[in-house]
């Protein structure tokens, strides 16, 4: 829990680690939108290759990034199975005509369209997890909090207290490990007085936590009061006229990276919606086999 500051960061030096956290945050957002819009396996492949290139550049072992999937793998498989089973594509005849098979059992079925849809969802989930995992492996939560505050800055126009949010994030990152440690100490103290936290049903367990939670709150409030005194003593007055020691500056590489990902998003959107009717974009959608809904079905 002490690692909340460095989070999951993989401590090596690389262009990805050094990149401006704001650029990384923006790229992450662009990347997520891109993945959501991707229509075909070929484009998933292109994005996966891009991601692989960034992973190699970051010098984080690819296996380390893949381990980010551990938490999500069960969910991904369950999603895949349900998508396949509940999807009957374009109906039995059309599916048979296109793919040559259609297995039915009870309310479920397995068909070509269903398998393709399941596969796309799997790709989407995997890519959606891997990108942000790489970001957390190369960026500290503190830097990320700074980036979020910067990103929210335009909201100041609408009188949203963006600075206060930033301060709250920073203090939360600072205090979470301390409070976590304290909770452990309180639990031990009450255990030493015979308290039991792992017996009985959920209500009993929740009740058993009261002797931990009350002192924890009391102490958190005391800490908050102390911290407020200390901040005020060091001339804090709500962030008015505050400057920063670390002025974030986008480097040329940050800008180029953002432009590259923006271009990738644009490319995916053009492929998907084909606004200008370019024929060549269809190459990237070749694997989108749509069963022809034949006359036999409609007629």
């Amino acid at each position: 829990m002490k690692d909340v500051v460095f989070g999951q960061i993989y401590p090596v030096d690389s262009p990805v680690h050094r990149a401006d956290p704001r650029a990384k945050l923006l790229i992450m957002i662009i990347y997520i939108v891109t993945v959501v819009f991707v229509p075909s396996f070929m484009l998933y492949g292109i994005i996966a290759l891009t991601l692989l290139a960034v992973i190699l550049m970051s010098r984080v072992p690819p296996l380390k990034v893949l381990s980010g999937l551990k938490a999500i793998i069960v969910l991904a498989i369950v999603t895949f199975i349900f998508t396949v089973l509940l999807n009957d594509g374009a109906g039995k005849e059309a599916e048979l005509a296109t793919f040559g098979f259609f297995v039915e059992f009870g309310p479920f079925c397995i068909c070509g369209s269903g398998l393709l849809a399941g596969g796309r969802i799997m790709c989407r989930i995997v890519l959606l997890i891997l990108g942000p995992t790489l970001i957390t492996l190369t960026t500290t939560p503190v830097d990320m909090a700074d980036a979020v505050e910067w990103l929210l800055a335009p909201l100041k126009l609408f009188r949203v207290p963006v600075h206060a949010f930033g301060m709250i994030m920073s203090i939360a990152l600072r205090m979470i490990p301390t409070l976590f440690e304290e909770a452990g100490r309180m639990m031990n103290a009450q255990k030493a007085r015979g308290a039991c936290f792992d017996h009985g049903n959920i209500f009993k367990r929740a009740g058993a936590l009261i002797p931990v939670l009350i002192p924890l709150f009391v102490s958190a409030f005391k800490r908050a009061g102390d911290l407020a005194d200390a901040m005020e003593s060091r001339c804090y007055n709500g962030g008015k006229g505050k400057t920063r020691m670390k002025v974030l500056r986008f480097s040329v590489w940050d800008v180029l990276a953002m432009l590259f990902f923006a271009a990738l998003l644009f490319f995916v959107l053009v492929c998907t919606y084909n606004w200008w009717g370019w024929g060549w974009t269809d190459i990237f959608k070749l694997d989108m086999i749509e069963p022809v809904v034949g006359r036999s079905v409609l007629g």
């Binding site: 909340v4 920073s170 600072r174 005391k222 102390d226 911290l227 901040m231």
Partner: peptide
């Protein structure tokens, strides 16, 4: 512990 604001 109660007078530090930042984590770095």
């Amino acid at each position: 512990d109660n007078q530090m604001v930042a984590s770095i």
